[in-house]
Design a protein around this nucleic acid. Structure first.
Lengths: 356, 356
DNA sequence: TTTTTCATACAAATCGTTTTAAAAGTATTG
DNA sequence: CAATACTTTTAAAACGATTTGTATGAAAAA
């Protein structure tokens, strides 16, 4: 400590809680009368291997315990190149779907000693790409991403650099990386079959204009089903702009419904669209399901509690999150048996309520 | 580079994207023909101050730009002791209230160059305390916390160590630290006054059993209002255990309502309790508001979309989040004028719908 | 007794930065 | 012309850990 008189003698004798420095490996080493590297070896379980005496091992462990020593994770990261940090990039953390994903992922990650850095892209490609760079630069060990279309290049760069990545909810068809998502096609197909079974024939479809793969697959299931089961399907599709205020979106849905009075059912492609739709239906004073039947992709508390309850296609959120984090951690641990599980589609379930 | 033949010559000439190392300050220095410290000074805007020639400054900046250099944040953190990381500890990230807080906080933090490490306590004191330690150990620059009661000691330790901390949604009355939350008392008082104005007299109250300060203040507003305006108030209060499955909670509310058939209104102390309540009311087939009026603390999409809409006391989430992050960043920047703003109560607003 | 071998712990390099002190060269002054 | 003062850049230490190679002494083998 020569040349570093941070404390006066008195202060050193009575270190107040206020200026107490965090205890480092040097402090432990000093207290144990050994050198820091010895402490490191002991605390990392390499005492046996390095033939450190059992007596010393015990002493060091005891002191570390007493002093409440925790290795400075920043220093560990710098030295080892592993941060025990995972980057979670979602569309919008305040959306229930993503927030639920985030919760499950957090729990599973914590079990394995990982912490989560989260970010929302708001479906902005540039923001998403920036986030990848920033998180990468912060040394996250791996990524969980619900990418927007313009993120393909950055994502593939990560994969090329062998950074562990798992995509969720969307994927890039051309890309070899891992992904986990609901089987959107079969989900919508199930919902559509249910509507047709119930006798609905003039079915409208409300989606957004983002052109994301999962939305395209849902829409394809809609048009395919209509085409297969109806002779001359008159497909009414509304594609709402993504960045539009709630009130305006509701207005657009109302116009759509008023222009297509022959519709007897509407399929909403996401839960937030469904919620807009409910608001619109309420304003127009339409009775559900007698005037108009409703099915929605994604469940929501609202759909369960509404009277009538809203029939929906529920994504297996827990399954998706669990599979995604497992896949990511297996990549981190360089599990070679991962190949066949790289691409997972989880089956959604149809929840039939009184809106159909 | 003598003694470090990481690449063969051929590889060096053709660095594939696969094994390309991240570009470090050394690389920039080598390319510019200077020493790393010079690069650091230039890139940190200290060129002028250190009298580095304008010519060299330009050259270094250009090369850094071309090479897409970003300082390794882990190394920066270790060296400077500042991580540009904020720890966000909430009760449950999958709850809309906290997820909304998280989104706003994320946005504001990003504007200032901070990233967020989030964690959920699930109202488990031990977990919460662990999280504080772990995040502290990871070098977060400051904390935003919705603490559970058992976290007081750890929180006060942070404050004693002059770690910037802002509590949200709850606080510890004895503690000097900063906090921002809704004015729970006046929120419930407003809601109660509204019920009394509408003529309801037999009002029940449903809360949880956590004993958190915000819940206590809400309950106190209920009992005070009842006491002040009614002569012999017969206060019916149900305190639901926190860790109880949904179905069971709904069942308990139903029992409560069946045991107190004289109730003409119920006040729910949080949105998730309100949602349980709606489910119970639905099961019992009670008409709202003719059989039973409902007011809920915290708004929710459901309350707006339900028929009838549910009257609620809406917390100013955006205001709370904005104030909290501002307060935190002011602490980080050692703003001395912070004293008077340390404790902020934001006024909730009464949203009157058709359930009353 | 001298040389090997083992057991044990230490020393030093390293990760990628920042920051302070020092050095080298040029210009100015007395 | 020597001393002083600037300019400009470099060198080295530090942050807190991990990891590899080395040093030391004692016991075993020659």
């Amino acid at each position: 400590m020569v040349g570093m008189p941070y404390f006066t003698d008195t202060e050193q004798l009575m270190p107040s809680a206020l200026n107490m420095k965090r205890v480092s490996i040097k402090d432990i080493a000093a207290k144990a009368g050994v050198v820091p590297s010895t402490v490191s070896l002991v605390l990392n379980g390499k005492a046996r291997q390095m033939r450190i005496s059992a007596e010393l091992e015990e002493r060091v462990k005891k002191i570390a315990e007493e002093e409440g020593y925790m290795p400075n994770q920043t220093a560990v990261s710098l030295r080892t190149g592993r941060s025990k940090l995972l980057g979670l990039i979602v569309e919008d953390i305040s959306n229930v779907f993503f927030a639920s994903l985030a919760k499950i992922i957090e729990d599973k990650a914590n079990e394995r000693g990982f912490k989560i850095l989260y970010c929302s892209t708001d479906n902005d490609d540039e923001k998403g790409n920036d986030l990848i760079k920033v998180l990468h630069n912060r040394g996250v060990d791996g990524f969980l991403i619900t990418p927007s279309p313009g993120m393909q290049k950055e994502v593939s760069r990560l994969i090329a650099q062998h950074k562990p990545v798992v995509l969720m909810d969307r994927y890039f068809p051309g890309l070899s990386g891992a992904y986990v998502l609901a089987d959107n096609y079969s989900g919508v197909a199930d919902g559509m079959k249910h509507l047709l079974d119930k006798g609905y024939r003039n079915i409208g479809y409300v989606t957004n204009d983002l052109g994301q793969i999962q939305m395209i697959e849902r829409e394809k299931a809609f048009t395919d089903t209509m085409g297969r089961f109806l002779e001359a399907p008159d497909q009414k599709i509304l594609r709402l702009p993504y960045h539009v205020p709630t009130a305006e979106a509701v207005e657009m849905i109302s116009s759509f419904l008023k222009e297509n009075t022959d519709l007897d059912a509407v399929f909403f492609a996401t839960n937030y669209l469904g919620i807009f739709g409910l608001e619109s239906v309420g304003q127009l004073g339409l009775a559900v399901p007698s005037d108009l039947a409703i099915v929605c992709f994604d469940d929501h508390d609202i759909f369960r509690l509404m009277v009538p309850g809203i029939t929906c296609v529920r994504q297996p959120i827990e399954e998706i999150a669990t599979a995604a984090i497992d896949l990511l951690i297996r990549q981190l641990e360089e599990d070679e048996t991962i190949g066949e599980d790289m691409h997972q589609f989880k089956l959604p379930s149809l929840v039939i309520r009184n809106s159909t």
